[in-house]
Design a protein around this nucleic acid. Sequence first.
DNA 1: TTTTATTATCGTAATATTGCAATATTAAAA
DNA 2: TTTTAATATTGCAATATTACGATAATAAAA
Lengths: 107, 107
Amino acid sequence: MGITKTQIFTDKQNDLAQVFKVLGHPARVSILQYISNQNACICNDLVAEIGLAQATISQHLKELKSIGLLNGEVEGKSMCYCINVKRWTEIQSQLNSFFNTTKSNCC
Amino acid sequence: MGITKTQIFTDKQNDLAQVFKVLGHPARVSILQYISNQNACICNDLVAEIGLAQATISQHLKELKSIGLLNGEVEGKSMCYCINVKRWTEIQSQLNSFFNTTKSNCC
DNA sequence: TTTTATTATCGTAATATTGCAATATTAAAA
DNA sequence: TTTTAATATTGCAATATTACGATAATAAAA
């Protein structure tokens, strides 16, 4: 079928998986790292920096925004994206909580 | 085109994204949580527990194995899966390192 | 040895994702 | 106002993922 059966999982499981999923693409990892390495906001140096078309970068930015990881601010005719620190920390906690709670047993 | 351009990213970025990607499905999150909640190894109670077909569960287990997160042991006619604690901790560190390194600037 | 139970693999259908060219949209600059 | 630059959106082709039935493989039980 091809469609994920989200109904059979809890909201927490779906949310967590969604966060993992959005982070699960090298372009998006790369975008986050690049933004963080700059001292100022990044606009679309990203297109030059990462070797993907403008439309593709824009799409990846959209997905990062969808989980609240990026703030975008209009700055003249360009966009200034930066990491939403509050959300960033929140997600880090969420993942650590998952890792700490899901402990191993057996074998 | 539909194919991820892994060549333009570093190995580290690709590895990290791959880990995120494997964790980015609610069934796999759920499988990990279920295995961890049992005191003994799980075999295919998973099929009964999670509402997915046996073939589908088997496929998800395979992906979790692909990043070294699960150990499988033959136990009679069933399989006993458990979390590879060493790898688990390793991945948790890797993710935390990413989160800590990728700090915010700007805005 | 035959049956039964458990798991893995194969083939396939449905859907999602990735990537890009083309085209909007927006706002500054001329 | 027209042009220009930056970003977003649309439409599409290629590929990947999800899910499952059918079937193979394996090992215990009968």
